[in-house]
């Protein structure tokens, strides 16, 4: 096996006295889709924020592409090619769709901004119809596309998607998972952080189940989908 793209070892983090992550270890290999699953409030978003540097780690190590990025400034982590598309999209509502996308390449891949813009419009034709529209006026699904498109503008080596299906209609959720498959087909590694267990396990090769700040289960996605523990806990079967 080649060297892991992302390797997390013994990571702990929290806010003040409250410990949210209590010893997380995981890897993402180049080119694979890894799912991190769990219900609300188990620490999924905190894990993402610590990886991308907007929250501090209290112990443990995060290594990305051979470089120790633990507690590095967010802009340096972006520069290294680890792009986090946050929960709730966090697009710039006051700016146009085009400006949002342009800012995606603020720190990285600025030289190929024009070609990447075309690629994003190819992937999301609906965004091209709305280039001059303020991003805040887009529908929820379009905003999610914009957030992912903005992430792709930086030519990521690893894309972390935090709850991309949250708040979308069932039809759009289906489309979103298809999209994750498509962007991964070009060899882009994706860490998919989701509550939607069934569909995430369908697209991922491996999965980690987060419960109260530790991984309760982990392994091959197809094995996990068949596991009794998981079915009992998340699918009520």
């Amino acid at each position: 096996m080649a060297e892991a793209l992302l390797a997390i070892d013994g990571l702990t983090a929290g806010y003040g006295q409250t410990e949210i992550l209590r010893g997380i270890s995981m890897t993402v290999e180049p080119g694979e889709i890894v799912a991190v699953l769990g219900s609300n409030g188990v620490g999924k978003t905190t894990l993402n924020k610590v990886i991308s540097g907007v929250c501090g780690a209290t112990a443990g190590r995060i290594v990305f592409a051979g470089q120790d990025i633990t507690n590095m400034a967010p802009e340096r982590i972006v520069a290294a090619g680890l792009i986090h598309v946050p929960e709730g999209r966090k697009i710039f509502p006051n700016m146009t769709v085009r400006e949002n996308l342009e800012l995606g390449s603020y720190r990285r891949a600025k030289a190929s901004r024009a070609t990447n813009l075309e690629k994003v419009f190819e992937t999301f034709p609906r965004l091209m119809e709305r280039t001059r529209q303020a991003a805040g006026t887009l529908s929820g699904g379009e905003q999610q596309m914009l957030a992912i498109g903005r992430g792709l503008m930086a030519e990521p080596r690893l894309l972390i998607l935090d709850e991309p299906s949250l708040g979308l209609s069932p039809l759009l959720v289906e489309e979103m998972f298809g999209l994750v498959r498509r962007i991964n087909a070009d060899g882009l590694a994706v860490m998919l952080v989701e509550q939607n267990v069934v569909q995430s396990l369908e697209v991922a090769s491996r999965a980690f189940i987060l419960e109260n700040g530790v991984f309760a289960l982990q392994g091959n996605a197809t094995d996990l989908a068949a596991s009794d523990d998981l079915r009992r806990a998340y699918l009520g079967m």
Binding site: S52, E75, A79, I91, E99, L103
Partner: peptide
Amino acid sequence: TDTGKAIRAVAKEKLGAALVGID
């Protein structure tokens, strides 16, 4: 300018700005 766009981005969405690499 990119700097100006970064200023407007930070004004409305701090976390989003940090995650595209704006200091």
